[in-house]
Design a protein around this nucleic acid. Sequence first.
DNA 1: GGGAACCTTGCGGCAGCCTTACAGAGGCGA
DNA 2: TCGCCTCTGTAAGGCTGCCGCAAGGTTCCC
Lengths: 217, 217
Amino acid sequence: MRLLLVEDTDELAQSILRFLRAEGHAVDHAADAATAEEAMALATYACVILDLGLPDGSGLDVLRARRRAGDRTPVLIATARDQISDRIAGLDAGADDYVVKPFDLSELSARIRAHARRGQGLPETRIAVADLEVDRAAARLWRDGAEIRLTAREWAVFDALLGARGRVVSKSVLEDVLGSFDTAIEGNAVEVYVSRLRNKLGPAVIETRRGLGYVLP
Amino acid sequence: MRLLLVEDTDELAQSILRFLRAEGHAVDHAADAATAEEAMALATYACVILDLGLPDGSGLDVLRARRRAGDRTPVLIATARDQISDRIAGLDAGADDYVVKPFDLSELSARIRAHARRGQGLPETRIAVADLEVDRAAARLWRDGAEIRLTAREWAVFDALLGARGRVVSKSVLEDVLGSFDTAIEGNAVEVYVSRLRNKLGPAVIETRRGLGYVLP
DNA sequence: GGGAACCTTGCGGCAGCCTTACAGAGGCGA
DNA sequence: TCGCCTCTGTAAGGCTGCCGCAAGGTTCCC
């Protein structure tokens, strides 16, 4: 499969390239953010391995820009062992995975297989819903730049509707979202949460389909 | 969202459960492979966190069994730092990701979000019926881009006709469809619903076969 | 022309939904 | 430990509009 390696340390890059090519992959190499962005715009890759510390800018910016442009190519971030916050930022920026440097090459290979195999289908992290701006990964949302705060359960219901956007979600599915095996839900809890959400989000965001469930337009 | 934690070390399990529940997730807990398998068969999870060292068998076997059964729920493996071969085996068995123990809880959470997000990217399946556009999974339909709203029973009848497209559906079958809600049907209810559907969908969509039933061309 | 099958419309009853209120659980600060 | 606050789930009451029947009209076939 066709891969893109974004890595500025030449020695490391060469050894990774050698290994992946030996495995039969067609691998392109970009040593800086500008080249990487250009390559991703020009070609379609099964997977991109992205180093964060690039000479001409953060790899994260490249990633965000591509995601904003609707690109869903699986991206695997390479980071140093102690940069946990980097990893989280990376995942939230739309990365699919990360590997910790120094990484085992056969492990890298397994991860590439895992991600390329999946096809794809990664939605952007910021989406517009009615007049709201929603960041699913961060579990936050805004209207006119002002943040609207949801409680944990309110978000759980809203997130379930987001995940099935455009499709009708039955009340029993939403009950499932709210309850586990041990804490079952009875009565009209779902209705109550929909009501509370409408109070915060406005009445037009969640539509009722009598007898069927609820939809996010 | 609804999660499943498979972890046999009780102390660790409790602290993860507490954390994830505080984030608003509905989390089920399984302490052995048998329980885990049962839970995954019974409920639909947004993501599963799977420990490999279980008392009654390898978590990998559970994973392989589910994948063989066609289950695509995102699975996140938890493994000890030095078990690189385990990680590779896990990814190749169909896992989507792994975290290394001991892991940072907020990092775990970010990874769960990243994977659960992806699990829902189902493509919508729209089909054309006469001059209508129909999405059966979403229970919605459109003409010229404008949505036509059906009530629950109207949709039940229309959906039954869709499922047998091209074949004649007898009135008694449609009565069954309507009766399955729980109240028995008498009289001309089916005719009434066909009439209401024709009002909304146009007269040419549903054809009458006198003495036999109805067809969708 | 007559009968059977089907279509259409109107309407009361009630299921399903919305909203508000409230009590319990849990967290937090003093 | 106590009080305060937020979040959560249940209960109760009110309202909306869907449901199914009924009645009368229309089409089809013998």
